[in-house]
């Protein structure tokens, strides 16, 4: 309390107000929708709301670090703000959020954002004290990008399917595929070089990353979303003057999450159209029958069981967590996965 107010008065009395720099690492390219829908508008907002006292530097293209090490990098101070892909941190305190990646848990980012917030507050928040965790959100529903046409579960037998983290392994095995673990940034080349035959990916992201080039067979599944959690370096956050901290808490932090959610929501429809157009001549945009979709849905249950077991092994109350999630979904009027 007192220390902060003296700091503040010092800053104000000095002729030059000290400018605080905030480094954001965007592990996607400068042309990705994160860049123009999320980071650039957020930068403007931050600089406007803080009257230029905070200046945001955006580094695109994984310049400051890869997506696979965001947690280490932000907690260690390589940069101040980054986006956690929950599945890459299955072994850490971010584990509870990986529930969102289970098959048919959420249909879209808005649903995921509202439910994961409560879920995370109950099961994850207490363990994540070395960074500041902002509101979680998620990508749009994943479709299946493949180098061969996939029209039924049987078509997947023996194919090398990219998994994005441990929670997908059981599902992929249930589908009859062979799980291959690859980072997002290696996926395009993996498809091209047949390191993998298929990848579940967000249709929006896939437009930007051009997955339809090596994998022109797209099966519309919305199988799962990937939880995305923005985090801030703790030292940076603690060093903010009290008034700025309030601005971040009340406006800027929630806004970052909202921008990500909105980016996925707004771009989904156009992406599907674009993808359909792109693959018209070289591949196929496949919509499954309800019956076939149900087959995929049923095979998802194995992944839930595996996740619950993992949760129990890690000392979390696995069954209770799944139950709590289903309650939240029901309360909010969303369908439950199985």
């Amino acid at each position: 309390g007192e220390d902060e107010s003296t700091n503040e008065s010092k800053n104000v009395s000095a002729d030059k107000v000290e400018v605080i720099e905030l480094d954001v690492n965007n592990w996607t390219s400068s042309t990705h929708h994160y860049a123009y829908n999320v980071f650039e508008p957020w930068k403007e907002l931050v600089e406007e709301k803080t009257d230029g006292r905070v200046v945001v530097n955006i580094f695109h293209g994984s310049a400051l670090g890869k997506s696979s090490t965001v947690y280490q990098d932000v907690s260690g101070g390589l940069y101040d703000v980054g986006l956690i892909v929950a599945n890459y941190f299955y072994d850490t305190g971010f584990f509870p959020y990986t529930v969102g990646n289970l098959p048919f848990a959420f249909e879209g980012p808005e649903e995921a954002a509202s439910i994961l917030q409560e879920f995370g507050d109950k099961y994850a928040k207490d363990d994540l004290t070395d960074i500041v965790v902002l509101g979680p959100t998620a990508t749009d529903g994943y479709d299946l990008f493949s180098t061969k046409p996939i029209k039924s579960v049987a078509d997947l037998k023996g194919l090398k399917m990219r998994v994005n983290g441990k929670s997908e392994i059981a599902f992929v095995q249930g589908l009859g595929g062979v799980p291959v673990s690859l980072a997002t940034e290696d996926t395009y080349e993996g498809l091209q070089k047949s390191t993998i035959d298929t990848a579940f990916y967000t249709p929006i992201g896939a437009v930007g990353l051009k997955y339809f080039e090596p994998a022109p067979y797209i099966t519309k599944l919305a199988v799962s979303v990937t939880p995305i959690i923005p985090i801030i370096n703790k030292d940076f956050y603690d060093s903010l003057p009290a008034d700025l901290k309030t601005i971040f808490d009340e406006e800027l932090n929630p806004k970052l999450t909202e921008l990500i959610t909105a980016s996925y929501e707004t771009e989904l429809e156009s992406s599907h159209k674009e993808l359909e157009e792109f693959v018209k001549e070289r591949g196929e945009f496949i919509t499954l029958s309800d019956e076939e979709l149900e087959n995929f849905r049923l095979l998802g249950e194995e992944a839930w069981t595996a996740w619950i077991n993992d949760a129990n092994d890690k000392g979390y109350p696995g069954e209770e967590m799944a139950q709590y999630l289903f309650e939240l979904l029901e309360e909010a009027g969303y369908p439950i996965p199985y």
Binding site: K66, S68, T69, Q72, D73, S75, G76, G77, L78, D186
Partner: peptide, 21 residues
């Protein structure tokens, strides 16, 4: 920056460029 940043840079950069397919 500081020692903490240096150790993190060493940790993740060495990892990413040796644990590499």
């Amino acid at each position: 920056k500081d020692w903490n940043t240096l150790t993190t840079a060493v940790e993740t950069i060495i990892w990413n460029h040796s644990f590499s397919y």
